[in-house]
């Protein structure tokens, strides 16, 4: 079977597909997050030994690391859709970028917030101008800047292109964040933030962390698709298919039936 993917590059064609995907991703995300919460709180040790002993507050790892990963991953997705939009000039790509941005900003904020509440008991401070923390904060400002720039320009096609350019320039932050905890000599650098190594993590903790990451990821799909549908509706509201769909939806709901024009008017041929 051959699927014509370009068919779904049209907002008209993708709108119903996104509508079917939202609950699928949403409920899958809910199941994974609940499982990860259960596993993280009840199947993991209360404290961690080793050279850097951690007490119960280490459980913040189950949301801190997934949020931080999602903040970077969603930025990559945002920049990728922006690039696709600029190269192929496809409306849906820009809409995708816009749909991802607020969710990415939320996860970036959460990475900073949960990090602060982990930093206080373990480092003794909520905030420090550590390279990792600072670069993540700049990523947060990039998300905000993307959304602000887009909404500051009235012409949506221009707004798309300007914001897309900003998103691509901002890509420079991803490697900076990634390598911000590295320095040639660990004794000689100011970085507070721990290095991470997936192979060193106790297997139950790793399980809860990875399942939570998957849950956040699926949640991002659901939220982005739901927002995409709103964006499509707003931008295509003058097109016949949106009007027809809204008419059909209102014809079956009491609100539409009681509308000013009544049912016959709603059924009227739109010419």
């Amino acid at each position: 079977m051959k699927i014509n993917w370009f068919k779904y590059a049209a907002p008209t064609a993708f709108y119903p597909v996104a509508g079917r995907l939202v609950p699928v991703f949403g409920f899958a995300a809910l199941a994974l997050v609940l499982f990860a919460l259960y596993w993280g709180f009840f199947e993991t040790p209360e404290r961690l030994g080793g050279t850097n002993p951690q007490k119960e507050y280490y459980r913040i790892i189950f949301i801190h690391v997934p949020s931080a990963w999602m903040s970077m991953w969603l930025y990559l997705v945002l920049a990728a859709w922006s690039a696709v939009g600029l190269v192929f000039n496809t409306r849906l790509s820009f809409m995708m970028a816009n749909a991802v941005a607020p969710t990415g900003a939320i996860f970036t904020f959460l990475a900073l917030w949960t990090g602060a509440f982990w930093g206080r008991p373990s480092w003794g401070t909520y905030w420090d101008w550590d390279p990792r923390l600072t670069s993540e904060l700049i990523l947060f400002f990039l998300y905000i800047g993307f959304m602000a720039l887009h909404s500051a320009i009235d012409d949506s096609r221009r707004a798309d292109r300007a914001a897309a350019l900003l998103a691509i320039v901002g890509l420079v932050m991803l490697p900076i964040i990634y390598w911000s905890i590295n320095c040639p000599d660990p004794n000689n650098c100011a970085a507070l933030h721990q290095r991470s190594s997936l192979t060193d993590i106790e297997s139950n903790i790793l399980t809860a962390m990875l399942v939570m990451t998957l849950g956040f990821w699926l949640y991002s799909f659901a939220a982005a698709f739901a927002r995409l549908r709103n964006i499509i509706l707003l931008r295509e509201q003058d097109n016949a298919w949106v009007r027809k769909m809204v008419d059909a939806a209102e014809g079956t709901s009491p609100r539409g039936a009681a509308g000013v024009g009544g049912r016959p008017a709603n059924r009227g041929v739109s010419v």
Binding site: R229, N230, L234, V246, D247, N266, V271
Partner: peptide
């Protein structure tokens, strides 16, 4: 997201009704 979807649908529906009445 859910609230903004409702708002958009209401607005689009209102505009559509105005058009079909005027045509």
């Amino acid at each position: 997201l859910r609230r903004s979807r409702r708002t958009i649908l209401q607005r689009v529906g209102r505009l559509a009704r105005l058009r079909t009445q005027n045509v």
